[in-house]
């Protein structure tokens, strides 16, 4: 698995309330929710995002509410992956469970700029900034988690087991 796209850059502590504001959570429909992805900090995101594009953020991405709607809207917008310095615990778990690729790589998250073109290989964890030519290696997932991802999410892996 890999992705190749342009970067949307965000700061530290991006919370799930700005990823998908609670005022829209009166529906569980992903397509409807995705129209409001990142709306409270970046009104341009939904208009500009192209399939495969990459979110790059600082520390503690996805903090706050446990709403799975947050990784779900990012995935529904066809974002290729999220690279952050660190992820909040519940967001990290939810992203794995629903199959949104995420990578922890503080150095890449620090140096990659908004608008850069990046290529990400999830199998190796290698992040290539095509714009600057620099490559980075993200922390690999533990085998247990790789197994969930490989089987297509938590429920699919449970059914198989």
């Amino acid at each position: 698995m890999n992705t190749h796209g342009k970067v949307f850059k965000y700061p530290d502590n991006v919370d799930t309330d700005v990823i998908i504001p609670a005022r829209y959570l009166n529906t569980p429909k992903a397509e409807e929710l995705a129209l409001h992805c990142m709306e409270d900090i970046d009104t341009e995101f939904v208009k500009k995002v192209q399939p495969g594009d990459v979110m790059v953020a600082g520390w503690n991405f996805g903090c706050g509410s446990s709403r799975e709607h947050a990784p779900l809207v990012i995935k529904t917008c066809k974002t290729g992956c999220v690279i952050a310095k660190s992820f909040a615990r519940i967001f990290y778990r939810n992203a794995i469970n629903i199959g949104l690729p995420i990578l922890e790589c503080p150095e890449a998250a620090e140096e990659i700029n908004a608008g850069d073109e990046v290529k990400v290989d999830f199998d190796t964890g290698v992040i290539e900034n095509v714009t600057t030519g620099k490559t980075y290696k993200a922390q690999p997932f533990p085998d247990f988690i790789q197994n969930i991802i490989a089987k297509g999410g938590l429920l699919a892996s449970l059914k198989e087991d």
Binding site: G64, S65, S66, R67, E68, P71, I90, R93, N94, N97, I98, G153, L154, L155
Partner: peptide
């Protein structure tokens, strides 16, 4: 499936928030 599930630790329980798939 609510982040404030950690509240019940006050009773001496292990309690944590997760998402809907969990």
């Amino acid at each position: 499936a609510d982040s404030h599930t950690c509240t019940y630790g006050a009773l001496g329980a292990f309690s944590t928030g997760v998402g809907s798939t969990d």
